[in-house]
Simulated scan of single mutants.
Amino acid sequence: MCRWRQVRNVYLKCSHSQNLPDQLNQCDSPRCKFSPYHPSSCQPPACTKTCIQYRGYPEQYSPNIDGLCPACLDSAKRH
């Protein structure tokens, strides 16, 4: 099932975090209407009865990065 991936980087040295743009992870299922493998010939009303009509819950990922956030790193370079 296709789903969005949400990434929030957490920077340990300054305690700031940064949300990255959401990414769409597409599945390989021909039964998911959002998949690139879903046949264009599959149309309602049959499609609504046989295929997944919604995306899955977003995958959330928050890596802890042992460093400064981009803003603090830029500020440190200027000083």
Rank of each mutant, 00 (worst) to 15 (best):
C2S: 02
M1N: 11
P44M: 05
C2R: 00
G67E: 08
M1P: 11
H16L: 03
C69S: 01
P63R: 04
D22L: 06
C72S: 08
N25Q: 13
Q6A: 06
P63Y: 00
H38A: 06
R5V: 08
C72A: 00
P58A: 02
S29N: 08
R8D: 00
P45G: 05
N64R: 03
S15G: 10
L73T: 14
P39E: 02
Y61D: 12
N9Q: 15
S15M: 09
S29L: 09
Q23F: 14
S41F: 05
F34S: 05
Y61C: 07
I52P: 03
C42R: 03
N64G: 05
H38Q: 07
C69A: 03
D74K: 07
P36T: 02
T50W: 14
P63K: 01
V7Q: 04
C47E: 12
N19V: 15
R8G: 01
P44F: 04
C2K: 00
H16I: 02
S40Q: 09
L73C: 11
D66E: 04
K33S: 11
T48H: 10
Q43K: 10
G56L: 09
R3N: 07
H79V: 14
H16Y: 08
R55D: 05
D66Q: 03
P39M: 01
L68F: 15
C69V: 07
M1H: 13
K13L: 13
A71D: 13
R55H: 04
C27V: 07
P63V: 04
D28P: 11
H38L: 02
T50M: 09
Q6P: 09
C69G: 05
H16Q: 07
C27A: 02
Q23I: 09
Y57K: 05
H79S: 15
V7W: 05
C72T: 03
P58L: 00
Q26W: 11
S15T: 07
A71N: 11
D28R: 07
I65Q: 01
A76C: 09
P39A: 09
I65F: 02
P44N: 00
Y11S: 04
G67Q: 06
S17G: 07
P39T: 03
A71M: 14
A46E: 09
P70I: 10
C2T: 00
C42A: 08
V10I: 14
C14G: 00
K13Y: 14
E59V: 04
P63I: 01
S15W: 10
S35G: 02
Q6V: 12
C14V: 06
H79L: 14
K77M: 14
T50V: 12
V10S: 13
H38W: 04
N64M: 15
V7Y: 10
L73V: 05
C42Q: 08
P70V: 09
D22P: 12
I52S: 12
D66K: 02
D74R: 06
Q60A: 09
H79M: 14
P58Q: 00
L68D: 13
V7S: 01
P44Y: 04
S62Q: 10
L20S: 15
D28W: 08
K49C: 03
C69D: 09
H79W: 13
F34Q: 02
Q43R: 08
P58M: 01
P63W: 07
C47T: 05
Q53K: 01
Q43W: 10
Q26H: 09
G56E: 10
T50Y: 12
D74M: 11
P58K: 01
P45C: 08
S41I: 05
I52N: 13
S75T: 08
L73E: 15
